[in-house]
């Protein structure tokens, strides 16, 4: 059964007429003309996974557009889009089908972008841009051959970890995501993610002699 066939009856409820909205950035946004997104969302609220998948993929360009206008760094913007999708997922129950979906999505996306920028701002205070040290890093006096070998060994050790442990390590430790977000992104449960992260760190410690071998 197609998603549209599943959602057919909800059109009868009739979401509000399409209208023009103005974003904070000043760009005029034309609301979805035929109420398709609203209908897909109503079907998603009822548990229709196909309608939900279709809706999220359909609105991705809108979310990316907002994120990229707000956040210069493309990777960071894409992370904000993913944060938005997670929030949409958590807040499904708060959407009111009598109202257009687009402002609801825009508000969530903008909120997640602001959060990303804030988090980045806080992080920037603790971090030192690596570009400033390019010369230092290149200088043989400060980066010894031993350092380079250790770095390569670490990368190889990480590459040899099982896929689930590598993903868990990246999301929970390197990207420093909250556990629930990292779990959602990795497709693991929070418990499984914790176990995978713990095992990955243990393997690395063991390999580099920071922990006794069993």
């Amino acid at each position: 059964m197609s998603a549209c066939a599943t959602i057919g009856p909800v059109f009868a409820k009739g979401p509000r007429a399409p209208r023009l909205g103005r974003q904070r950035s000043g760009t005029v946004v034309v609301a979805d003309g035929d109420g398709r997104w609203e209908a897909l969302m109503v079907a998603a609220q009822a548990g229709d996974a196909r309608a939900y998948d279709l809706l999220l993929r359909d609105c991705l360009p809108l979310l990316r557009g907002i994120a990229r206008r707000r956040i210069a760094d493309a990777h960071e913007a894409e992370d904000a889009v993913q944060d938005t999708l997670l929030t949409v997922h958590r807040m499904l129950a708060t959407y009111d089908p009598s109202r257009p979906l687009r402002p609801w999505l825009i508000a969530i996306t903008e909120r997640r972008c602001v959060d990303r920028l804030r988090r980045r701002g806080r992080g920037a205070g603790r971090e030192t841009p690596i570009d400033d040290h390019a010369e230092t890093l290149a200088a043989p006096a400060t980066e010894t051959g031993e350092d380079r070998i250790a770095g390569r060994q670490l990368r190889e050790a990480v590459a040899e970890l099982p896929e689930s442990q590598r993903t868990a390590l990246r999301l929970a430790k390197l990207e420093d995501l909250p556990l629930a977000d990292a779990a959602a992104k990795s497709g693991l449960s929070v418990g499984a993610l914790k176990v995978a992260t713990h095992r990955a760190l243990k393997t690395l410690r063991r390999r580099f002699g920071a922990e006794d071998k069993p």
């Binding site: 998603a44 609220q45 009822a46 548990g47 229709d48 996974a49 196909r50 939900y52 998948d53 999220l56 993929r57 991705l60 894409e78 889009v81 993913q82 999708l85 997670l86 997922h89 499904l92 129950a93 959602a184 992104k185 497709g187």
Partner: peptide, 16 residues
């Protein structure tokens, strides 16, 4: 990763 996330969220969907 975003496509993958959407697939996972859809698979995880429950009626609300």
């Amino acid at each position: 990763a975003t496509d993958d996330l959407i697939s996972r969220l859809s698979a995880d969907l429950r009626p609300v």
